[in-house]
Design a protein around this nucleic acid. Structure first.
Lengths: 189, 189
DNA sequence: GTCTATATATAGATAGAC
DNA sequence: GTCTATCTATATATAGAC
């Protein structure tokens, strides 16, 4: 029987180290040191270094997938859907900005099965995002700029929030949401 | 005596591998295989794996620094300066999108001296960017949104171009520049 | 749940022949 | 300029004592 709570501590510590140096550059000894134990002791709680990475990434990817599916199925206009997507990214970033570093930079180190699962989720996320923008352009809610550029510029900003937001001391989440919506959408609308 | 041209080939091959898996996950044997030689042979052209990384990153960082300094010292309004910064990023991305992966994701693996040099250049770049936006807001050329959010959202998009642009088959550089300026700036102006 | 000791693999880098 | 052979360090992971 594995202690879930200890495992979660390890995953949290690993997320921080992976954010600082990347998955490949962090050793099990580094992680053990951060936990105040020896490397061998880690294996009483986790099966492998790979398991830590996949737990971090897959959990977050599933959060985004669930959130996006709810937004896609909601009966609101395209602008409101984009606002809800911005909210989703800010909420996830506030809850686990360290883990998002692995999702963004170390997904390619996932093993075969999880790699495929992750790539499928990421592709579907992007396609849902693109479809919302397209629909908004068709219904003349969004300006007819190049759709790929609008999708890319918005997503790239949302995906990089994990690097920026933790350094902002004086921005409340609600104010951030409001201002981010202005900056990201006012150019399109 | 080292053959510069062979060294450049190695650096180009390394940039591609570093982009795919990150600096730490690429071995000298991987790099040698990509070059069609043995790992030991690489050392006839380069001193260390670290030298490859620092060559890639410092060269690019200096390009951005030089470009930004020219823009800062030019006598044009804030909007035109931002347009020129967008051009700069697109030009550098077109010339060396692979190397930009290392600059963005592996700078923390630079050794002390180069790490400090890089971080200084990056900080000055951001400060120049912020000053241009601030000046534009003061002169009422740019809307008075939150400055940090405008700086972050624009820079995050420009910094991620290296991932996106190589996948776009049908976008000409001049059209990209024009549309990117629209999407990034129309929300601010 | 953590430890010491260790198995096994692989990393960056060098020596010296061709 | 490239090779084979190899040094030395360090990686992930396991076995078994406490």
């Amino acid at each position: 029987m594995k202690s879930e709570s200890r495992k979660e501590e390890i995953i949290r510590a690993a997320s921080i180290l992976f954010k600082e140096k990347g998955y490949s550059a962090v050793t099990m000894r580094d992680l053990a040191k951060a936990m105040g134990i020896k490397a061998a002791s880690l294996y009483n709680h986790i099966d492998s270094k790979q398991e830590i990475l996949s737990t971090i990434i897959i959990e977050l990817a599933e959060e985004f997938t669930t959130g996006m599916n709810q937004i896609v199925n909601s009966k609101v206009d395209a602008i409101k859907k984009l606002e809800n997507i911005i909210d989703l990214h800010i909420d996830v970033t506030l809850r686990n900005s360290d883990g998002l570093a692995s999702l963004n930079n170390d997904w390619m180190h996932l093993e075969e099965k999880n790699l495929q699962y992750f790539e499928k989720m990421r592709q579907e996320y992007e396609e849902n995002f693109r479809a919302i923008v397209k629909n908004g352009v068709d219904r003349e809610e969004i300006k007819p700029f190049n759709i790929e550029i609008m999708v890319f510029s918005t997503l790239s900003t949302l995906r990089t929030l994990y690097l920026w937001y933790p350094k902002q001391k004086n921005i409340d989440a609600e104010i951030l949401k409001h201002d981010m919506i202005s900056v990201l959408l006012k150019g399109m609308v």
